[in-house]
Design a protein around this nucleic acid. Structure first.
Lengths: 122, 122
DNA sequence: TGAAAATATGAATAACTGTTCATATATTAA
DNA sequence: TTAATATATGAACAGTTATTCATATTTTCA
């Protein structure tokens, strides 16, 4: 199946139910969206792309070269990140520059990174 | 394929390479582990289980009842979370109680939740 | 010991996901 | 317009994942 299911799922699972037991009153819908959100961070290619963007805007080809990935792989993943509003595009001539769309993205990345490094004992 | 691949992958992808371009000197290995870590949060069932545990220790059957899931679904997911050291088990008679193993888990959950709620404009 | 309760596990399956390859689109420059 | 460059997209495929169902294990209690 193609990558559009990232969006498709979001619609299919949407509903109004709420979790009966919840210390913080988080709706089932919100919990679903939260898991969908974390999915974007749950892939090596996307995490590496996000990591690159922590240093700022970067073009598609530059990502592909620096990460040693095929251009289409990068484009496909950027499409997923763009659709989810995690990154935003800017055109400059025939190049496209992408950057992180939300200040939270870097925060979440670093929170997870802190955990990993802590586990490793560094 | 069975759920053991969560552990299997971790071994297969381990290596010493480092990303050449990196503002924060994060190794390719660490970036891979980071994406594997976020994967645990990228499933509705696991997120709901983690959410329940924010309120403290809980038994397998209580999870299944409160989330309206089959017992084996909960056990399978708990096995994944336990293997990844995200939750820890405690036996009391014939019941097993599970709780979050690391203070970071709640932090990451809430950081993501803040993002989702912010996006929703609440 | 035997039955019941609580949990864990294995195999099978359906659905999802990332990559690959080929090709399309868009922009610039000659 | 044509060629070249940069990026996007679609279809197919292989690998992965969550769930289901059946069964095994562990512990308690009669």
């Amino acid at each position: 199946m193609n990558n559009c299911s990232y969006i498709k799922n979001k619609e299919l699972h949407r509903h109004d139910e709420r979790t009966e037991v919840s210390a913080h009153e988080v709706s089932l819908d919100t919990l679903f969206e939260l898991s969908e959100f974390f999915k974007f961070f749950g892939d090596t290619t996307r995490i590496r792309i996000i990591h690159l963007m922590l240093s700022g805007e970067i073009s598609v080809n530059d990502i592909a070269e620096k990460l040693n990935l095929e251009q289409s792989v990068v484009s496909h993943q950027l499409r997923i990140l763009r659709t989810a509003n995690l990154v935003k595009p800017r055109r400059d001539g025939r190049k496209m520059f992408y950057s992180l769309d939300d200040e939270h993205i870097g925060l979440i990345f670093n929170t997870g990174l802190t955990h990993i490094l802590h586990k490793k004992g560094k």
